[in-house]
Amino acid sequence: MSELLVQEKEVVIPGQILAKGMDFLPAHGTFREEDNIISSMVGLVNLNGRLIKIIPLTGPYIPRRDDVVIGKVVDIGPWGWRVDIRWAYQAMLSLKDATQEFIERGTDLTQFYNIGDILMVRIVNVSGSKVIDLGMKGPGLRKLTEGRMIQITPSKVPRLIGKQGSMITMIKEKTETRILVGQNGNVWISGLDPIKEKVAVDAIDIIDKESQSEGLTDSIEKYLNDKLGIKKEKKVEEKKEEVKEEKESKKKEK
């Protein structure tokens, strides 16, 4: 006799028994021990027929093929570049995947990408031995300049992007910045106006911290409106701004 002990979207913790009996199948984030299916991470339950899956609420970024990520060049060798993509193992960007150009033997590779450069790359392959191959062939894959990188929890990337990009598009449009989100939780922000850029950074920070709260898109919209509205009135009435800021700080506390 099989029995389901949790509900859809319930928050579970490691070691919690999700279901008893052989009628259910363990999927990502769960495992079977004897007759029981047990959660192995903190996350939300997702039921799909007989499959029980956990959508993680925290945890490291796990590289998958064809993910577009943002990483930092940490080493250069004769084979290409080594890139840190916030994963326990460094990823390799080999010469053949890096560029369409012909690179002659002995060329100084720093003229393409140097140590410390931020790259937007695609994961070409993840091998069983955890060696990750990166590629730069594809639309939008390039070296990122003129901007800054911030980091969010990798599991919150889908929340930052929103349904069909609703959240990120809203932030982009309201703050007039360019934002690139890597699947590994690295976010690249470049805006013409540093004040607006700061607002965008703060908004992303709020999303990272309060990703589970309901109606997040609305509250972020309100936050952006408030913040950007204030900036326009700044020169006219300084007092008003102070009052508003007080209100906001109270809101934040809540």
Binding site: I13, P14, S40, G59, P60
Partner: peptide
Amino acid sequence: LADAGIPMRDL
């Protein structure tokens, strides 16, 4: 460890 998202069999 659970907060870090490390797979665990139990607390």
